[in-house]
């Protein structure tokens, strides 16, 4: 059973951590940041509420998180293919001199890193440390 201090702190901090991750992702073209750090920050928010609460409802939310991982990876491929078909080169800049392409790729990468990190954490969180057979 978790202490109420841990529960309250996790519940109060998680929205702000998620918001900061979204900010780092979306403003990656104007300030330090980008898809990878933003995705990891958002994943740390979800991990915070996973370790501070034992509720089954939250665990069921991240049950199929690896599908988002797959979606992010192939959306990145689709953006590249869009550049190939519309402009003639793989990952071509479809909107010259405007950061739309970078923001799009940032969002896709942050979704992918977020889902991948949470999936890794959920896998390690479920492990039992006792060996099944000692030989």
């Amino acid at each position: 059973m978790k202490s109420p201090i841990v529960k309250t702190a996790g519940r109060a901090l998680t929205p702000f951590v998620l918001l900061y991750g979204a900010y780092v992702t979306l403003f990656g073209v104007l300030s330090p940041g980008g898809g990878f750090p933003g995705g990891v920050i958002m994943a740390s928010g979800v991990i915070l509420i996973l370790v501070s609460h034992d509720s089954e409802k939250i665990k069921s939310l991240v049950e199929n998180i690896e599908w988002f991982d797959t979606f992010g990876a192939f959306a990145f491929l689709l953006v590249g293919l869009g550049g190939l078909f519309l402009s003639g080169a793989y990952f071509a800049n479809l909107w010259p001199r405007s950061p739309v392409m970078l923001i799009l790729l940032d969002i896709v990468v942050s979704l992918k890193v977020f889902a991948g990190t949470v999936a890794l954490f959920v896998y390690f969180f479920k492990q039992e440390v006792e060996p099944s057979s000692t030989e």
Binding site: N93, L105, V109
Partner: peptide, 21 residues
């Protein structure tokens, strides 16, 4: 040409997007 002021981000997602893939 990429429209961003963040050079690291520009290299990562524009000049070397294939690497990032």
């Amino acid at each position: 040409d990429a429209g961003s002021v963040n050079l690291v981000e520009t290299i990562l997602l524009n000049y070397r997007a294939y690497d990032t893939f």
